[in-house]
Design a protein around this nucleic acid. Structure first.
Lengths: 218, 218
DNA sequence: ATTACTAGTAGACGAGTAA
DNA sequence: TTTACTCGTCTACTAGTAA
């Protein structure tokens, strides 16, 4: 019975309730949900109870807004649709080459990681990673990718510092085999780290600011 | 109460029922839908009745598949999610420059259309259109765009031939103002026609096979 | 206008079971 | 094992109405 909640949340989101509080009477919500004012009022109370929305109950009209939990509910359903409609056998990330080795570069270049890359990817990465700044409109695809199985690279301890698990996803840039590497304990970022057998900048003659398409295998 | 049907259709699609017949017992579907075998069986009959699925009732196990109507149901909901999550104030179409004036080019370059373009777009297009072959993974975005209001260009008759209504959507290629023009009575294609005040190939130094991002305004 | 209670009803669901 | 019927229950809805 989770379905009726996401249905309501979706309609609220379409009314603009994702970013801001919106003034929606129970009568109006009932119209959007094709149900009575009374039922819509009840639905709002249920959504409040489940912490999917928050409400500012003014004198004339209530104002409601999705919580991050509510947004997550929608995202889950959205990702199901993406699995249905978008996934052929690859996902294409559009982005721009970014400068710097970055923290991730140092992180990833540990020998322990490198040996494991050799095993799962079939090549020993060239030292250093290529950073790609993923276009805003493609950042959501990273969620999808993290939902894939990928290749798990075990973490380890060294010199008192802990290096966590990393997941590698096989990919291609301009038909050159490479892999996206993502530390498991990472939250939303718009920069991805790419490892490759070759020095990608030199091999493909790409530089900071150049646009690239990263084709991730599924 | 359409919601429970799309819920079932979505789960069937996730099981692979979009492309091929899949063997799913009512027991299994019940598991996927978190309901009893009996209710799942009933749901299947309802979906059949609504022509959302077709069934091949074998001796041991039934095999089901979504119909195009069923897929359309899902697409409708999918597009709602895209409006929620993907639409900021633009949609980016990734594609490749394609050669030839094409039929659309001749079509669009009629004076009657051109005068109307001047009115709604604020510029008189350079004669001829730029054809962009939209990447496979972005073709679905064309659905979204066609769902927008856009600018309607009225059709007309000339020399016994009828020219239908056309819709123009303001866009930008590498920050140059242009517009995508779509004949209203067009079905799924992966090539879009673009009009612009300037000769785009010359202005931007682009040629067949070059990749471009078309940023469509909402 | 609002929101939201109570009461009554229609329909969705699962158990039991037949084919 | 399947699919799918009947039937009883219980939930989800709407109408009426209060605040």
């Amino acid at each position: 019975m989770d379905e009726k909640y996401t249905f309501a949340l979706r309609k609220i989101a379409l009314l603009g309730g994702m970013n801001d509080y919106i003034a929606v009477s129970s009568r109006e919500l009932g119209e959007a949900l094709d149900m009575s004012q009374q039922s819509a009022s009840k639905r709002i109370l249920e959504l409040l109870d489940k912490k999917y929305i928050v409400r500012d109950l003014g004198a004339r009209k209530q104002r409601i807004k999705l919580t991050s939990e509510g947004i997550d509910q929608l995202k889950g359903e959205y990702n199901e649709y993406r699995r249905i409609f978008e996934l052929s056998d690859h996902i294409v990330l559009h982005g721009t080459i970014k400068s710097g080795l970055g923290e991730g570069g140092y992180y990833i270049c540990q020998n322990n990681y490198m040996d494991q890359f050799q095993d799962v990817l079939g090549f020993k990465p060239y030292e250093g990673t290529l950073n790609v700044h993923v276009d805003k409109e493609d950042v959501g695809k990273l969620d999808l990718i993290k939902g894939l199985t990928g290749h798990t690279i075990d973490g380890f301890h060294k010199d008192g510092r802990s290096f966590g698990n990393v997941t590698a996803y096989k990919a291609k840039i301009r038909n050159v085999d490479c892999a996206i590497v993502v530390p498991d304990r990472t939250h939303h970022k718009d920069v991805i780290e790419i490892v490759c057998q070759y020095h990608l900048r030199r091999t493909l003659s790409i530089n900071d600011g150049d646009r690239v398409d990263v084709r991730v295998e599924i």
